[in-house]
Amino acid sequence: MNVHEQIPEAQAQTSARFYEALDVTASFDVLTEPSHYKPVPNDWFVGTADIVNSTGEIANGRYKTVNMVGAAVISAIANAIGSNTFPYVFGGDGASFALHVSQREIAERTLADLRRWASEKFDIELRAAIAPAPDIRQAGVDVRVARFAASSGADYAMFAGGGLAWVDEQMKAGHMMVGLSDPGAEPDLTGLSCRWTNVQAEQGEIISLVVLPTSGASERDFADIAQRVVQAIGGLNRAGHPVPVNGPRVGWSSPGLNLEAHSLRGRMPVWLFKCSLFFKTLFSWTLFKTDLNVGSFDPVHYKRMLSANADYRKFDDGLKMTLDCDPKTRAKIEAILSEAETRGKIRYGLFAQSEAMVTCFVPSAMEDDHVHFIDGAAGGYAQAAAQLKT
């Protein structure tokens, strides 16, 4: 008898709505405190996926492809379950999420489809794993979640407890792996796009930061260090938000258009889908360039919500940020982290570049719940994470 069958129906229904029932906070600062995170119920599971040798792919100039495949994990799962109200986190070269056990079969099938799709469309090896919450807790770690409102339209999950990191380690060791679907399988990636041009740094440079606790750090230790970093970036304009208030500069992203065509064409010939996408993109570009309203669609409002909804900072068993940062603040951040690293409390990686990149998941352009994943445009989180291995 599985975990789901052992739980009374009413209790299972309450458990399935766990994430929807969580309080939502609009203050990122308070999320440094462990007390704001609630454990997922025991009849939940964690899924994760990432690209094998993402740093090598980036070295070959495929950083936009890496981000597209990473964000595809979230869009595919959201489309498969019919909702984007579930806890997930984007990691640059992959993503993690948590769901109720009733959705495990569809999640596993979707991950298997994603692995096949990434291999056939981009010659990228995407690995994936699934772990039930009881297995994670038996390993001495936990999965706890909080909800952060980036704006009135979108909120993101934050994770603590070490569970995501443990599942990631298990996956990289070859455990709990999800297999490959049959050749030709494709996930539903409706709403996934990466047409925006990159965003130039305005305060100095775009830094991608990954900070992880060591085994010698308590939750209190890491919370105090994270709080000091968050306070340090408070002196930056808009706390280092890399996307301007009125959205990215309107331009034409040929690499993004090509990626989208290869990702979403299904069985349609790529040239035909690309032609269709070209005219749709031209129409959208005209609207955003002229700020012309069409029906109920307001391009000015959309661009402002794009900026407001941008996912440029997160907690996922660590602290990750993509910031528009000046030299003085960077030096302050590095001083805090170097001191903490010397004390054996953290490991960190920091990678600097001149631009940030936006990858979008837009279920509907008429609603305000579209989400936008931000990463450094020259490798970002994957490059920063690679420094943790040295």
Rank of each mutant, 00 (worst) to 15 (best):
288 F>Y: 11
316 D>C: 13
304 R>C: 06
329 T>K: 01
325 C>S: 06
295 G>C: 04
321 M>P: 03
282 L>W: 07
303 K>C: 04
293 N>G: 01
307 S>C: 08
323 L>I: 12
267 R>W: 08
311 D>C: 14
324 D>C: 09
327 P>V: 10
307 S>V: 07
301 H>Q: 13
322 T>C: 15
283 F>G: 10
315 F>R: 02
274 K>V: 03
280 K>P: 00
277 L>T: 12
278 F>V: 05
311 D>H: 15
292 L>I: 07
327 P>W: 06
273 F>I: 05
281 T>Q: 10
284 S>R: 05
293 N>K: 15
289 K>N: 08
296 S>R: 12
313 R>F: 10
268 M>S: 13
301 H>T: 03
274 K>P: 00
313 R>P: 11
310 A>E: 06
282 L>C: 12
283 F>I: 09
300 V>M: 08
296 S>F: 01
280 K>T: 08
291 D>L: 11
319 L>W: 00
310 A>K: 07
289 K>E: 08
267 R>S: 15
312 Y>E: 05
274 K>F: 14
319 L>M: 10
274 K>H: 15
292 L>W: 13
306 L>R: 04
272 L>I: 15
275 C>E: 12
314 K>Y: 13
320 K>I: 01
296 S>L: 07
294 V>P: 00
275 C>G: 13
284 S>N: 06
290 T>F: 09
308 A>G: 02
267 R>T: 15
299 P>M: 04
272 L>Q: 14
274 K>G: 10
326 D>R: 07
301 H>W: 07
276 S>N: 13
281 T>V: 05
293 N>Q: 07
300 V>S: 10
323 L>Y: 00
309 N>K: 08
293 N>E: 07
286 T>N: 06
272 L>G: 05
310 A>T: 13
304 R>I: 05
306 L>S: 02
290 T>G: 10
324 D>E: 11
308 A>N: 10
296 S>E: 00
325 C>I: 15
314 K>N: 14
294 V>C: 06
327 P>A: 04
322 T>Q: 00
323 L>Q: 00
302 Y>I: 01
323 L>P: 03
306 L>C: 06
267 R>I: 13
269 P>M: 09
303 K>D: 04
324 D>T: 05
278 F>C: 10
318 G>E: 03
267 R>Y: 10
326 D>Q: 11
305 M>G: 00
311 D>E: 15
321 M>T: 03
322 T>G: 06
290 T>C: 11
318 G>Q: 03
275 C>D: 08
320 K>N: 14
320 K>Y: 09
288 F>C: 00
311 D>F: 15
280 K>C: 06
284 S>H: 04
324 D>Y: 08
284 S>Q: 07
280 K>Q: 10
279 F>W: 15
305 M>H: 10
329 T>N: 02
306 L>F: 02
285 W>S: 05
279 F>I: 09
295 G>D: 02
278 F>P: 03
271 W>L: 13
274 K>T: 15
287 L>R: 04
302 Y>V: 04
327 P>M: 08
